[in-house]
Design a protein around this nucleic acid. Structure first.
Lengths: 211, 211
DNA sequence: AGTCAACTACACTGCACGGTGTAGTTTATG
DNA sequence: CATAAACTACACCGTGCAGTGTAGTTGACT
């Protein structure tokens, strides 16, 4: 009955947060292969040894970092969803608000898109990233639930809410991500708003209830 | 008036093709940083020295490889466009044929998506990749021209053909690329067809002429 | 004061890889 | 056949980096 030995120290949450924060920043900027653990340690204000005692190796640090980040982003998205599509009167205004908030979140931090970029880049090298997480699924599901609700209210006509949710996400973020190479190149707020609104327009033309 | 000295040899087209072919294969599988020039040389059946005499360094080889590949893909796309949307009677059948051929091309070789994946991954490290090439632009334009033609025939209602072309591309490929992580994970032909047809359906709901 | 865990600083190993230099072999060409 | 260019094989250098080992410092708890 021996434990599998990795955690020689149990570590403090504050240090873990510092390490993961620095790791995310460097991984997003440099990609996995180009990132050195020394750079992360320096950026986190922590010795390299501590990182290895905490996480074992670079790969585990990478996976832990992405997992934490994904959790945070999922939670943020759920809040955004509740805020913008919680109670809807004007369907167009509501969806535009949703798209706009979503887009500014992308534009401000560029973190969400950058995480996508990193995952796309590294997916084939880390099979763990490929497995659909329950969190990822719950995001799609939450959005679909909202759309189903709007369908029931007679504001939308979405016979397959899961599919509609997929298209809404695609239409809102697709062109922005495409143009910016998933956050690699900046884009003006006005341009982002234009692209988002265009996407919403198409979504509504396809899914608005026939009055 | 001295030349900038790189090409110590002028090289044969056949060897260039072998090198670029091997390079593409390895770069797509491993990504830039993980790829060693030795691996490319071995895979191409060529000495490492020859590669350096041809291309100077790894970065140039990488950029040349992507440029060649992009040219080939652009040409293939133009042919596909002519083949499927050259003369259209039934708009739905034509667009579905377009989407289906496009999708099988993606599914068969997985090359197109993988190139996208590689470019997304490396865009921020190679500014040269960010500059929109005339070729890239011409693809969007060719598709937009076809759509404008269909608009003129009264089959579609696309007031802004460039935007419509963007959405068509997004709707046809977006969900496939998203699910497969740009080709990192395989997807059955039937599933691909389903996703493509769904995209076409949305496009038509948004852009079909009101009869 | 004493103890123990967390932590840092730092030296060190091993390895993979980009890039070069060169001697010798093949191949094309006149 | 002779000459030159193309090409290979191979040794080699420098470097950056993952990961380890360890001695010494800090700080909390008793």
């Amino acid at each position: 009955m021996m434990d599998s030995s990795p955690p020689l120290r149990q570590g403090s949450p504050a240090k873990r947060a510092a390490i993961v924060g620095a790791a995310l920043q460097v991984f997003l900027r440099e990609g996995y292969a180009r990132t050195s653990v020394d750079a992360i340690a320096a950026s986190a204000g922590v010795s390299k040894r501590t990182i290895y005692d905490y996480y074992g190796d670079k790969e585990q640090l990478f996976l832990s970092t992405l997992k934490d980040t994904q959790s945070a982003q999922t939670a943020a998205f759920q809040r955004l969803l509740e805020r913008t599509l919680g109670h809807v009167d004007d369907i167009e205004a509501a969806l535009t608000a949703f798209g706009r908030e979503f887009a500014t979140e992308i534009a401000r931090s560029a973190e969400r898109a950058a995480v996508m970029r990193l995952m796309i880049a590294e997916a084939s090298h880390f099979p763990a990233l490929l497995e659909p997480t329950p969190e990822n699924h719950s995001v799609q599901h939450a959005l679909a639930d909202r759309l189903a609700e709007l369908d029931k209210q007679g504001l939308l006509d979405t016979p397959d809410p899961m599919e509609a949710a997929e298209f809404l996400g695609l239409l809102v973020t697709g062109r922005v991500n495409h143009r910016t190479w998933y956050g690699a190149v900046p884009l003006g707020d006005a341009e982002i708003a234009r692209l988002v609104e265009g996407g919403i327009r198409i979504f509504l033309r396809a899914y608005r209830a026939d009055a």
